[in-house]
Simulated scan of single mutants.
Amino acid sequence: NFKFPPMLLLLNLSGHQDGVRDLSFAPSGSLILVSASRDKTLHIWDLNKHGKQIRVLSGRLQWVYCCSISPDCSMLCSAAGEKSVFLWSMRSYTLIRKLEGH
């Protein structure tokens, strides 16, 4: 009879104004986390610094559905309900390119 240990809340990350749709950890093991939300923003968190919010990326017209960080941690990709994909720099936190065509 195996019993799971009780759940322990490590951090409570708050800042979005609506539901979170997706989460993506940096593959580098740096404990950087990106959250995509129905509030039309992406939030970047540093879990090494007690969940400090590093940056908020905004400018979307619709919900941000998903996000993913590139294997080398240089770019962040996000998709929103605008039939476009957005590529962001993870160094300067600026928009690199908007890919359209869907």
Score class of each variant (00 low, 15 high):
86 F>I: 15
98 K>W: 09
83 K>W: 08
38 R>M: 08
77 C>Y: 12
77 C>I: 14
66 C>M: 08
63 W>Y: 06
78 S>R: 01
31 L>M: 15
6 P>K: 11
88 W>T: 02
55 R>Y: 14
67 C>G: 01
68 S>L: 13
42 L>Y: 02
93 Y>F: 15
30 S>F: 13
40 K>I: 00
74 S>N: 09
12 N>S: 13
55 R>K: 15
76 L>S: 09
94 T>K: 15
53 Q>R: 12
35 S>C: 05
81 G>Q: 08
59 G>I: 08
87 L>E: 05
17 Q>N: 12
25 F>H: 01
101 G>H: 11
89 S>F: 06
90 M>T: 05
35 S>T: 04
63 W>N: 05
98 K>R: 15
4 F>D: 11
18 D>H: 03
62 Q>D: 14
82 E>W: 02
55 R>T: 09
90 M>I: 09
82 E>G: 01
63 W>G: 02
2 F>Y: 11
80 A>K: 04
4 F>I: 08
5 P>R: 05
24 S>H: 11
91 R>L: 08
78 S>T: 10
36 A>G: 04
83 K>R: 15
25 F>Q: 04
23 L>K: 04
83 K>Q: 08
22 D>P: 13
35 S>F: 02
9 L>A: 11
46 D>P: 04
78 S>P: 06
86 F>M: 12
57 L>H: 02
16 H>V: 08
76 L>V: 06
44 I>L: 08
61 L>A: 10
74 S>H: 07
53 Q>T: 08
65 Y>W: 10
67 C>S: 03
85 V>P: 00
7 M>P: 07
14 S>Y: 13
